[in-house]
Design a protein around this nucleic acid. Structure first.
Lengths: 336, 336
DNA sequence: TTGTACGCGTTATCAT
DNA sequence: ATGATAACGCGTACAA
C-alpha cells in the first residue's frame, strides 16, 4: 500500500501538504491549485488509500460501528443491520459485524473484540435471556465501555444499562390481540418464544393482558424458539389434536411464516379455517400478505447510527408501530 | 481505554514485558510467574484491551476480513456471510460488512473502504452484471489490491480476475431441469433472473440446454429480479393467462417462495396442480419442503476465510451440490 | 502557502 | 529474565 509519504515524495511536497490535499476539509489551510493537482495525480498513479490504522491511532477514534447480532439469518435482525449499514455508510462509517448465534458468551467476546478495534459505537441487535450465565460479565464490560465514551445502543430490551431504542413489545402484542378479538376471533393461541427472552416474554404478556380483558383463556405453545421451524412445528402440533384454535398470533413474522407452511401443507385454508398474524413487518411477511404489526426495523438501525455519530444528541425514541391488515385474517361473521 | 503503558506502570514493569505477558505466545521470552501475575492483575483492574489500531500499524496487517455483499437481506447471501463470520471468528478474525445493494458503484466504494481498513482479505458475495458501468473501475481496484497482497475471493461468478470459489450454476440448473423432466414434467417454465447477471444467466442456460435435449421449448419469465416478489408476480402473471405450465423452476429459493405464495393464494394445490423447484437450499426452502438444489453456501464462506487466513494454500474448489427432493414436486403418472 | 517534528499504541530488535 | 528504543502511517501544532 502506498503511504502518504510516497505520495508526497512523488509530488515533491511535504507529507503535511499531501495530507491537507487528500483529507483536508480544512479551509484554514489553502493549497495552491498547482500543488493540489500534482498531489492528486500522484495519489492516483500510486493508488493511494489512507490507512485507517494510522488515522485511528492519531485521532483516538475510528469510523467504525460495531454490531452484535443475535442471528444474521433472521430477517428481523438482518433488516436492522441493513438499516445500520446504510446509515453508517452515509456518515462515512463502516459496519463491523459480529454474529453472536444467540450465545451470551459469544456476545461478550465479540463485544470486546469490537472494542479492541476502536468502534465508536456498538449496537446490539437482539434481546437477552434473563439470568443466563455470562450476562453479568457482559454487563460489566458494557458499563466499562460506556464509562470510557463508547456509545452502546440496544435495539431490543436488555438487562444491562445502555441506551435503548426499543419498540414497546408488550403494547404491540396487546394491540394486535385486541385487533384479532375485534375481528371476532376468540380461541386465539400465541405461538413461539423462549423462556426468559425478554422481548418474547413481553409479547406474551401483552397477548395475555388482552385476552384476560376479554375474558378469554390465553394459551401459549411452541415456546422453544423464534424461527420458522418453531412456527411450523407448533402449528403441526396444534392441528394434530382436538381444540384447533380459530387463529394463531405468532411471536414474530418468521414464526408466522412457518405456521402458514404447516397450515397449507395440511390442506387447510387461510384465513377461513384458521387465521394467522405475526409481529415484525418483514419482506417475507409482505409476500404472503401476512397480517402483522409493522415495526420500523431499519429505522431503528438508522436511529442507532445517528445517536452514535452525532455524539451530543439525547437518545432518540423509537418511532411508532403500525398494524398492517393482510389476507391471513378477516372479519369473522359468526363468533362462536 | 487503558493502554499497554498504563498496565506496565501499574505493574511496575516495562511495556515490553507487559506486551510479552499479554500478547506473547512467544516461548523464546519467558517471564517469571511473579511478574506475569502482577501484569495480568494490573490489566484486569484497568480493563485493558489491546488496541487493534496500534497493532495494525506495527504489524502492517489487520485481522479483518471484509465482505462486500449484494444484499444482506437475501438468505442466499446471509448464509454465506454467516459462514464467513463463524470461520473468521474461529481464526481470530473480525468480519467487516459492506452491503452494496446490488450497485456496482457502491461495490467499488466499499471495496476501497475495506482496503483502507487494512482487511487481510475481501470476499464478494454476489455476482455482477456484465458490462454494467463501474465494472471496469472495480476490476482495476481489485487488480491493484491483489497485486499488493490482499486476497480477494468471489463466491459467485465475476468479471474481474480473482480467486473464485463458485458452484457450477449452469450444471445445477441443468441437472435440476433433467430431474424434473425425469419426473414427467414437460411444460417447465423458468422464472426469475436479471439480464446480464452472470450467475442467473448461467442457470437459464443450464435450463435451456436440458429442455432442448428433451425437445421441449424453454420459456423464461420474470427476468426482472431475484426476489420473492419477483417469483410471486411472475407466477401471478402465469396463472392469469392460458397455457399454465405444469411446473416452474425458479432461479433461486427466494423466487420459489414467492411462487409458492402466489399459487397458494390462487387456491391451487402443490404439486398436484403445479410443481415448483428452486435453487439454493436455504432455511425457508426447507420449511416449505421445497424441491431444490442444495448449495453449500455457508461452506463457501468458510472456504473463503480459510483461503485468506492460510495464505499459502492453493484456492479451494467448491464442494458439490446435491438435489433435495421436497414435496413441491412429485412423479407425474401421465405425462401429457 | 508550505514544511518540520512529535506522538498516538504496539511489537521487534538489540542490549543488559 | 527484563528493559530501552525505534518504527509503523497519520494529523496537527508550530515554525518559516
Amino acid at each position: 500500500m502506498a503511504t502518504l509519504r510516497d505520495v508526497a515524495e512523488l509530488a515533491n511536497v511535504s507529507v503535511t501538504t499531501a495530507s491537507r490535499v487528500l483529507n483536508g476539509a480544512d479551509e484554514s489551510h489553502p493549497v495552491s491549485s498547482r500543488v493540489r493537482a500534482s498531489v492528486v495525480s500522484a495519489a492516483a498513479t500510486l493508488g493511494y488509500r489512507r490507512s485507517a490504522a494510522g488515522r485511528a491511532l492519531k485521532n483516538g477514534h475510528n469510523n467504525l460501528i460495531g454490531v452484535v447480532a443475535s442471528d444474521i439469518l433472521d430477517p428481523y435482525f438482518a433488516e436492522m443491520i441493513r438499516g445500520i449499514e446504510i446509515a453508517a455508510a452515509e456518515c462515512g462509517y463502516v459496519t463491523v459485524l459480529a454474529n453472536a448465534n444467540r450465545d451470551p458468551y459469544q456476545e461478550r467476546t465479540k463485544f470486546q473484540v469490537l472494542r479492541e478495534h476502536g468502534a465508536s459505537g456498538i449496537v446490539f441487535c437482539g434481546s437477552d435471556i434473563e439470568g443466563s450465565p455470562g450476562t453479568a460479565d457482559l454487563a460489566r464490560e458494557v458499563n466499562r465501555a460506556v464509562g470510557e465514551g463508547t456509545r452502546v445502543v440496544s435495539l431490543a430490551p436488555r438487562g444491562f444499562v445502555s441506551t435503548q431504542i426499543v419498540v414497546d413489545n408488550e403494547a404491540t402484542a396487546y394491540s394486535l390481540t385486541k385487533h384479532m378479538l375485534g375481528l371476532g376471533y376468540r380461541d386465539i393461541v400465541f405461538a413461539g418464544g423462549l423462556p426468559g427472552l425478554t422481548a418474547a416474554e413481553l409479547r406474551i404478556q401483552g397477548y395475555q393482558r388482552a385476552m384476560y380483558e376479554f375474558d378469554q383463556l390465553p394459551r401459549v405453545v411452541g415456546r422453544d424458539g423464534m424461527s420458522q421451524k418453531t412456527g411450523r412445528e407448533a402449528t403441526q402440533q396444534l392441528l394434530r389434536v382436538p381444540n384447533t384454535p380459530d387463529s394463531i398470533i405468532c411471536t414474530n413474522d418468521e414464526t408466522a411464516i412457518g405456521s402458514l407452511a404447516a397450515i397449507w401443507q395440511a390442506g387447510l385454508r387461510i384465513p377461513d379455517d384458521i387465521a394467522i398474524a405475526g409481529i415484525g413487518g418483514t419482506a417475507t411477511g409482505r409476500v404472503f400478505d401476512l397480517t402483522t404489526i409493522e415495526l420500523p426495523l431499519a429505522e431503528l438501525g438508522r436511529l442507532a447510527v445517528e445517536y452514535i455519530v452525532r455524539k451530543s444528541d439525547a437518545p432518540p425514541t423509537a418511532p411508532a408501530c403500525t398494524l398492517r391488515e393482510g389476507r391471513t385474517t378477516q372479519a369473522v361473521r359468526d363468533p362462536v
